[in-house]
Simulated scan of single mutants.
Amino acid sequence: MSPRGVAIPDLRERLFAAAERVVARDGAAGLTSRSVTAEADCGKGVLHAHFAGLDEFVAELVLDRFARGARQAEALDAKVGQATAAANLQEVVLALLDALPPAVVGLSLTRPAAALRTREGFQAGAPAFDAIQHAFVAYLQAEQRGGRIAADADVATIALALVGTMHHLLMTRVPGLSEEPEATVRRLLAVLLGGAGQPPTA
C-alpha cells in the first residue's frame, strides 16, 4: 500500500483497472469505493480525494473505456493495405469488445446518477460508438481507394452494422454461455464484405 501523502503513478488507471476486476469478480453490487481502493491497494480515501463520489468515478470509468476504444478503432489507419480487410476489422472489433467489458458498460445502467454523468460526457463530445463508427468508415473508404473493397460497397452501412453488432454483444453476451464473439464477427464480416477483403481460398 502506498504510504500516506505519497503520489501514486497512473492513479486513475490503477483505480479503473481495480474497479473492472471487482465488477468481474463480484458483480455491480460489489462495487464500492472501499472495494475499489482495497483492490487497488491504496488508501481508503483516495477515490473520494480524486472524484466527487462513486457515481462520478463510474461515469469517468465508462467514458475512459469508450475513449480507449475509439483510439483502438482509429489505429485501423495503420492497417490499410495489410493482411485482409476482414482480418483487420475482426482484430479491432474483438479488441474493442475487450476494451469495453460488458460489466463495465452496464455499470452506469445500474446507477442513475452515473448514467446521467456519462450521458452528459457524451453530449459534451466524449467519444462513443459514433467515433468508433467514423473510424470504421474512414478505414473502409481507404481500402476502397486501394481497390481492396468494391467501389460500390456501402461502407457507411457496413460500419453501422459492425457497431450495431458490437453494441448487441456488449449488452447481451454472457461469458461461457453465449457464442464466442470471434465466430459471430467472422460470419458478419463474410456477409458484409461478400468476399471483398477476404483472404483468398486455396
Rank of each mutant, 00 (worst) to 15 (best):
A85Q: 01
E179P: 09
R111E: 12
G81V: 07
R68W: 10
I8T: 07
A114S: 05
G30N: 10
R173N: 05
E74C: 03
R25Q: 09
P199Y: 08
D130Q: 01
A67H: 04
L61E: 00
G195R: 04
D130M: 02
R68D: 07
R71E: 13
S33L: 14
V191A: 14
L177R: 06
A126Y: 14
A83V: 13
L192F: 10
L107K: 01
L192Y: 15
Q82F: 13
Q133F: 10
A115P: 06
D41A: 14
A73E: 08
A150Q: 01
R21W: 14
E13G: 15
E179W: 01
A190S: 13
A59G: 07
V105C: 14
H168Q: 13
G5Q: 08
P200R: 13
A113E: 11
L11H: 07
Q198Y: 06
Q133M: 11
A78C: 03
V104T: 13
D10C: 15
V191G: 13
A202H: 15
A115C: 14
R71F: 01
L160N: 11
A95Q: 13
F122W: 08
G45Q: 09
D98L: 08
Q72S: 15
Q123I: 12
I149K: 04
F57D: 06
A103P: 15
G106D: 02
P127I: 13
V191P: 02
A28T: 15
A124W: 14
M166R: 03
L177P: 03
K44Y: 11
C42S: 09
A202D: 03
L15H: 05
P175I: 04
A38N: 12
M171V: 13
A87N: 00
L116F: 02
L192W: 12
P181M: 09
T84G: 00
P181A: 10
L100E: 02
G5Y: 07
G45K: 11
L31G: 12
L189P: 06
H50F: 10
G197T: 09
R12F: 01
A161P: 03
Q198H: 09
A83L: 15
L162V: 03
V22M: 06
F51K: 00
M171G: 13
D55A: 12
G121E: 02
P127D: 12
V6D: 12
H134K: 14
E20C: 08
R145P: 13
Q90K: 12
F51S: 05
E182R: 10
A202S: 07
A28Q: 12
A115L: 08
G197S: 00
K44F: 14
E60A: 02
Y139E: 04
